[in-house]
Write a protein that binds this DNA or RNA. Structure first.
Lengths: 109, 109
DNA sequence: TCGAGCTGTGAAAATCCTGTGAACGCAGGG
DNA sequence: CCCTGCGTTCACAGGATTTTCACAGCTCGA
């Protein structure tokens, strides 16, 4: 069995690596200080590079239930994630907004 | 099955692919930054390759109602679409103008 | 018990999208 | 040449959406 659980470590953009099983996201080998939610969100986004994911999808994956109507949690955590990623990788924009739809993770800025 | 719903992904021109269900138009695998309207228009045009579509047809399909008299919305959005497609595929002209009638999508430039 | 950090929520601030009028360019006819 | 018809593009205001901030409730270890 390929036994994929979707939690294999991923090296991205040559500088960012995500090790979900170790609850860690590394930039140039040093761990980011991400909270649980932030890491879950990043992991989920990064599991589907270049794919536009809706808020509903992201919320379901990360929170494990359906979002309330007009829930903005995903946006807030994307913002917090960007802030921390921006400190570690100032020259890249890994998470892209798709207006009216959701977000997309792009390994190469 | 013949059950076409018009939302099947289409690969066009070897480089452009449209996945309406994922709200995405991809060039070489990476999504264009299209707005909702732009994507709807492109999807509609590309759903009928080589067919000349009138402004009325396009407006009805995309906006879901009849255009005002002398409405130029379709033209404006074709222009915006061309601009973005031109950045991603500089060597091709996918949307052709048919004077006095409307527009035609041609997969092979 | 206290303090520090995480979470989710409302709401202000910033940004982007839409539709519209108008200017511009281009070609053909008079 | 000027006028006319048509398509293309610009500019802008209003509306919609996203981003960010502030805060109150929780958790957990010191």
């Amino acid at each position: 069995m390929a036994g994929e659980n979707g939690h294999a470590p991923r090296r991205l953009a040559e500088r960012l690596e995500i090790r979900p099983d170790e609850h860690a996201a590394l930039v140039d080998g040093r761990p980011l200080s991400l909270t649980m939610r932030e890491l879950q969100l990043l992991t989920t986004l990064a599991a589907h590079p270049q794919r536009i994911m809706t808020r509903e999808e992201l919320y379901s994956e990360v929170w494990g239930r359906e979002p309330r109507h007009a829930d903005r949690s995903v946006d807030v955590y994307v913002s917090r994630l960007r802030s921390k990623l921006g400190e570690a990788l100032p020259d890249r924009r890994l998470i892209h907004t798709h207006n009216g739809i959701g977000y997309r993770f792009s390994p190469d800025g």
